[in-house]
Design a protein around this nucleic acid. Structure first.
Lengths: 209, 209
DNA sequence: TCCGAGAACTGGACGGTACAGTACCCACCA
DNA sequence: TGGTGGGTACTGTACCGTCCAGTTCTCGGA
């Protein structure tokens, strides 16, 4: 009767399968990963995998949706611009935010997850939509709220905060994300990223201050 | 010996296979499309397919690279800003350019091709890289050249034209392209697209004029 | 602390299916 | 009649999901 105890054997196996499947799917894609691969990588019998997850699709869906939790850190980052009403400090904060934002979103894991979801968006349309809403749009909405707050303080001049947030992230991410999508992985140096961040903020402030 | 005659039967079959394979890959992805599907769709025997293309990978590569020709139209569009040195006319031209640019790049076919390449970028890294360079970067370089020309005329103030081109396209495309990547297909109305185009130009000019 | 009952896990084998690529035969055309 | 292109049937492989017989772990109770 101890099936769902947090530290029980079952829970440990469950966790091991999740981790193994995540790594395998990230590395080799959905179609490129067999259930035998996952079982072997998790050091678990295939039977056990099927005891925890009804089938391959369910396993995949659960893994992808589990990653939406990780965006919480990003939310905190984006929400965390101090409210001291000073123009110079604003620029300072935005610069730091943009660099952290860009660094976080160009992590290999993040980019690979992105590729994984996009690659299977036609097979699992609901999954792609769910991740888009719970991951992508949530961050943008938070960023928009931050911009709105800054606009209320008179530090920015913004009609449509969500659009401004999209302009902001679009300018920052367009180049490195596209490069990463079409190539195998990240294709940029930290210096390049910082440059993109700085220039993006410069243009953003030129238009929205 | 008449295998390579332009109008010969062989050439027609070749064309039919290319078109069928393009449609099939676009619709169902690489792994989701079988060689039998392609043969049936092209109204041709599988044997004939293998007579024209060594294997599935070669067929896929040839199809994808064939589409890079289509970006020529985009190049012409982006290069085609008239050189009349008038600020109002500039804004007019940029607005029209941005709308056409956005409309062209959010065509379902374009987006699906994009998804197709991204989805298989890890299986065919060279292919993704080639398409990125010959498609993506070529358009951006042309746009950058146009901006440079406008800067030379004193209509824009630009240090790094290529970065400006990326800012421009990033602001325009970030929202609709991402939505399309994560969902099955296009998710926007023409009015939304026009709005994105107008606002993108507004911000661009605010920063770069 | 020890024990036993039952749940969970293991390893392998297997059915069924889908599919890439090949071998072989036929029909038509010169 | 010779040969070229096209169709059918086949081979081999990979993999999902299932089944079974035997083993290991967990935990409440003595």
């Amino acid at each position: 009767m101890a099936a769902i105890e947090p530290g029980g054997r079952s829970a440990r196996k469950h966790q091991a399968i999740m981790e193994a499947a995540t790594a395998a799917f990230m590395a080799k894609g959905y179609a490129g990963t067999s259930m035998d691969d996952i079982a072997k990588l998790a050091a678990v019998s295939k039977q056990t995998v099927y005891k925890h997850f009804a089938d391959k699709e369910k396993l995949f869906a659960e893994i992808v949706l589990a990653t939406t939790d990780r965006v919480d850190a990003m939310i905190d980052l984006v929400a965390g611009i101090p409210t001291d009403a000073d123009a110079d400090a604003l620029e300072e904060h935005l610069l730091r935010l943009s660099r952290q934002f860009l660094t976080a979103l160009t992590q290999p894991q993040v980019l690979q997850l992105r590729r994984l979801i996009i690659a299977n968006a036609d097979t699992f349309p609901d999954l792609g939509a769910a991740w888009y809403e719970q991951g992508f749009e949530r961050v943008l909405a938070t960023l928009a709220a931050t911009f709105q707050r800054l606009a209320d303080q008179g530090l920015l001049r913004i009609d449509d905060p969500l659009l401004a947030a999209n302009h902001f992230s679009g300018m920052l991410l367009w180049i490195p994300v596209n490069r990463a999508m079409f190539h195998g992985g990240p294709q940029h140096t930290q210096a390049e990223l910082d440059h993109y961040a700085d220039e993006g903020v410069r243009v953003f402030l030129a238009a929205y201050r």
